[in-house]
Design a protein around this nucleic acid. Structure first.
Length: 354
DNA sequence: AACACGGGGTC
DNA sequence: GACCCAGTGTT
């Protein structure tokens, strides 16, 4: 599984990666360092002009170390996270004073510089010196969380440790620079936060999240209340004046309340295409029906979840073979408890809205 | 372990 | 409006 991952990633990089950036492939630790500081929590497109400006103004680390603070901050203006600028300047002067103007070439020494943490140290160590340190940035967290189906929060201590160890295991021996560059490019181009290119992904065959349909839910971050979105499609199936419902049980919301035939999907569905969904057809197998209508979308906000519901009105042509649900006369529905979403729906329907 | 730190792009 | 971006330093 791990060899597959690394092999596919490297071959994708070789065959399909067309991403170019001024600092890519170079060995000059000063330029690599500068690019990495600028790119912390910053998009490449946003940082690019700043990188060009800094390289032009300060071609070497000695130039930067000798520059007046105000001038350097002026160059940084508009980029944000200004502590980066302050630390960068301090590091430049550290390099001059402690390392005689020569960029340090061990991981520990690199990380001892101000503004350089584990990520930036690994990036410089690998790109400039091909040292075997795997980078762990937002891209790597996302790719590994999805590919291995890891739900450990990436912003927890345990998560950082777990992902760091895994990233290190996956690092291609002797190819640290190329591998680290490849995995970050892959995250930016293929395994994007939104709308990842799963159909074209060379890792798709073994991607746990893709198989489990949890790609959009990964990676998990613990900070802030994560409000999960869920998409319910309720099939209001009627036959001879009776409606199929069941009582909700189990470890989930709305325990002991009733509901119609539920089809939950991991993502919103085009209700018009519902009849071609495998889950829908398998649910209604051998139940001839007529489609009477589809309701508008209902939204309900719970503490930790947002529930989006839509109701599909069907009339069975013959006795349906639906298990786990009971047939209740429409007039008796008022004897059962339903979640607000469903009572809203029933209210609307009684008003003739559907 | 939790929080502050910026501006911009995307959906 | 929420999320995220080639994270790090401070409390």
């Amino acid at each position: 599984m791990k060899a597959f991952f690394t092999d596919k990633l490297l071959s994708w990089n070789q065959l399909h990666n067309t991403r170019t950036m001024p600092w890519k492939g170079i060995r000059d630790p000063y330029r690599i360092w500068l690019s990495e500081i600028i790119l912390q929590q910053t998009r490449v497109e946003q940082g690019l002009p700043y990188y060009e400006r800094f390289i032009t103004a300060y071609p070497t680390v000695k130039d930067l170390a000798a520059a007046p603070d105000e001038e350097v901050f002026r160059h940084w203006q508009g980029l944000g996270y200004y502590a980066r600028c302050k630390n960068m300047l301090a590091a430049a002067r550290q390099i001059v004073s402690e390392f005689n103007g020569r960029f340090p070439d061990t991981f520990e020494q690199i990380q001892s510089l101000k503004g350089i943490g584990p990520y930036t140290a690994a990036a410089i160590a690998s790109f400039a010196f091909n040292l075997p340190h795997a980078v762990l940035d937002g891209n790597v967290f996302r790719i590994l969380a999805r590919y291995f189906g890891i739900t450990t929060p990436t912003d927890s201590t345990a998560g950082k440790k777990q992902f760091a160890a895994l990233a290190q295991e996956l690092l291609a021996p002797g190819q640290s620079a190329i591998y680290n560059q490849a995995i970050m490019d892959f995250g930016a181009v293929m395994c994007r936060p939104q709308q990842p290119a799963c159909p074209q992904c060379p890792l798709a065959a073994k991607c746990v999240a893709l198989q489990q349909q949890t790609v959009a839910q990964l990676p998990v971050k613990s900070k802030k209340l994560v409000i999960k979105k869920r998409y319910f499609y309720y099939i209001v199936l009627e036959y001879k004046g009776q409606v199929f419902i069941r009582k909700r049980t189990g470890n989930d919301i709305w325990q002991n309340l009733h509901e119609f035939i539920l089809m939950e999907t991991p993502a919103p569905l085009d209700a018009g295409k519902l009849e071609s969904e495998p889950a829908f057809t398998s649910l209604l197998q051998q139940t001839p029906y007529t489609l009477d209508g589809i309701s508008a979308a209902f939204k309900q906000q719970l503490t930790h979840q947002t529930i989006y519901s839509q109701f599909i009105l069907l009339t069975a042509v013959k006795q349906p073979a639906i298990t786990d649900y009971m047939a209740v006369p429409r007039a008796r529905l008022e004897q059962y408890a339903f979640p607000k979403t469903i009572t809203d729906f029933l209210q609307n329907r009684s008003l003739g809205l559907f």
